[in-house]
Design a protein around this nucleic acid. Structure first.
Length: 509
RNA sequence: GCUCGGGUAGCUCAAUGGUAGAGCAGUAGCCUUUUAAGCUAUAGGUUGUGGGUUCGAGUCCCACCCCGGGCACCA
């Protein structure tokens, strides 16, 4: 013991001290090796998962076929010459029943060295215990990986079908930092991230079926654009030049429309060098899709069918499905200006600046004096309309001043052909009839460049290459951006973006 | 950035300014259908960090770090 204690000290990270627990487990590992049991195996042939195995035992059956399962030990109830344990794998958990007379002396001794979190393989026939629980009566036991550090498995019981945990691993910081431990002990967290994968798979399938081509555009860009945000800056050594991590995919995807790909989409990470809160992570997953010859009305139907498909798939996921909202199409469509005028009770666009600020102050917009007129209108719209939208609703036809990238609305060039989709007070999608006039585009870039020169660090630069592309002629195009993290939050009723990102950005410990 | 709350054993949590504790996990023992198994014994701590007040600080004061909620920022 005292010898191995020295090893532990060396093995530990500075500042870590599991001390006695890891010492005990290392001692156990040494004893196993001395007995010729290898604590870290190479492979294990399993015949079933825990869920598959449970299904093999019919309703009235007392005995079932022999199965081979692998997973982690999540609970252990030793009882003299027998023991009950629960084995957890990706899909679920199943009880194990170990008997000394059935395992044999060798394996029984090995079983006494097992700890919570150890990864093992077992073989044995299925059976049903006195209380009816499907169980594997273990006849053969293989240690696959010794856990030197215990996972924070809490005890749990099922009350009225609900899992009740005791001493659960609940520290939100540690759960995010050690997502591997969070996932290992919380099946519902695994279910959520399984749902995330299903969501992107469904989106891909849906767009693929519509004839869209999935493409990959640069993350490292010499110029950034397509959104208003502060970028991350990095440096390429060989070229000796700065590169920016993209803040949007938009400008490259539209280059591809120019190139003749008529329907393209990309699902990838955007990076914005801004604050972190429950709806913002510095890197996040964005879906953008562009369709030639389509306008924003067509894109609304695309968004509708995409969301319905996604919700239908997630609704079928156990433990997740219950929180997925029911979506009824077509989603309501409300026009930006009339809905604001109605909510404010005043024709806000007709007011002069002083009158507008007065109304804004009355409805609770903070420091209206410091805001520009378009920003003021946007704040008022957020306070009066957006925040009150619960079921998915398209807000259409934004004022031109709020939408520098959208085409003017046919028949009313004070407005643009733009929509945003809101649900539960949050934005889920943003889309336009895309600007395809290179002369207009150049003017807007130059306006941005002037803002940047004046100190606006979210403004972008003139992208000459993008203008060259557009000068070759860009077909009329509808484009949509959907934040996947926020969409998943909406569909699974998750409040914090950190909970839908496997490894959210955090300060180092 | 502002503001409120929090940080004590591996996990979840206690502790009037007066000897840092419990349950689970761990260790040793008993127990051949248990399931938050049980019983007996036992080990486990730089109370986020650094200062200060005090005879004495987990507790009071100051600064800082980290996390969470709210606000601000973020089309």
């Amino acid at each position: 013991m005292s010898e191995s204690a020295g090893d532990v000290t060396n093995a530990e990270q500075p500042g870590e001290d599991l001390g006695f627990v890891m010492r005990d487990r290392l001692a156990s590992l040494t004893r196993l090796r001395e007995r010729g049991v290898e604590p870290f195996a190479y492979a294990f042939d399993r015949s079933h998962t825990t869920v598959e195995a449970r299904a093999l035992l019919g309703e009235g059956d007392e005995e079932g076929p022999v199965v081979r399962l692998a997973g982690r030990i999540a609970s252990w109830r030793g009882q003299g010459k027998t023991a009950f344990a629960h084995l957890v794998d990706q899909e679920g958990r199943l009880q194990l029943y170990l008997r000394r007379d059935e395992l044999g002396e060798e394996a029984w001794e090995t079983s006494k060295e097992l700890h919570l979190s150890d990864v093992i393989g077992v073989e044995g026939p299925l059976m049903r215990t006195r209380t009816g629980e499907v169980t594997v009566r273990v006849t053969s036991l293989t240690l696959l990986a010794k856990a030197l550090r215990p996972l924070p498995f809490g005890k749990e019981q099922v009350v009225d079908g609900e899992i009740v945990r005791y001493s659960a691993f609940s520290d939100t910081e540690q759960r995010a930092r050690q997502r591997y431990a969070d996932l290992a002990v919380h099946p519902e967290v695994r279910a959520l991230f399984t749902a995330r994968s299903l969501l992107t798979r469904t989106i891909r399938r849906h767009l693929d079926d519509l004839g869209y081509l999935e493409v990959e555009t640069p993350v490292l860009q010499p110029l950034y654009g397509g959104a208003a945000a502060r970028p991350f800056i990095t440096h390429h050594n060989a070229l000796d030049m700065p590169l920016y991590l993209r803040i949007a995919d938009e400008l490259y995807l539209k280059r591809l429309i120019v190139g003749g790909f008529e329907r393209v989409y990309e699902i990838g990470h955007d990076f914005r060098n801004e604050g972190i809160d429950r709806t913002h992570n510095p890197e996040f997953t964005m879906l953008e899709f562009y369709e030639a010859y389509a306008d924003y009305r067509t894109m609304m139907t695309r968004v509708e069918s995409l969301l319905v498909a996604a919700a239908d798939v997630l609704r079928a996921v156990p433990t997740i499905g219950a929180s997925v909202p029911t979506l009824v199409t077509p989603f309501p469509r409300i026009e930006w200006v009339p809905s604001l005028v109605q909510a404010a009770g005043v024709d806000v666009l007709a007011l002069d600046d002083a009158g507008l600020k007065e109304v804004a102050a009355r409805i609770g917009v903070e420091r209206p004096g410091s805001l520009s007129r378009p920003k003021l209108l946007d704040e008022m719209f957020q306070a009066l309309v957006e925040s009150k939208i619960d079921t998915p609703t398209f807000v259409v036809d934004y004022p031109k001043a709020l939408s520098p990238l959208a085409k003017p609305k046919r028949g009313d060039d004070t407005l643009t052909e733009r929509f945003e989709l809101f649900a539960r007070g949050k934005e889920l999608a943003n889309a336009f009839s895309e600007l395809n006039d290179p002369i207009d585009q150049r003017e807007r870039f130059e306006a941005q460049a002037r803002l940047k020169a004046a100190g606006d660090d979210e403004a972008t630069m003139v992208d000459e290459d993008y203008l060259r592309a557009m000068e070759y002629g860009m077909p009329p195009t509808g484009g949509v951006g959907v934040g996947i993290d926020r969409l998943l939050m909406y569909l699974t009723d998750t409040a914090n973006i950190r909970d839908v990102i496997l490894f959210p950005t955090m300060r180092p410990e």
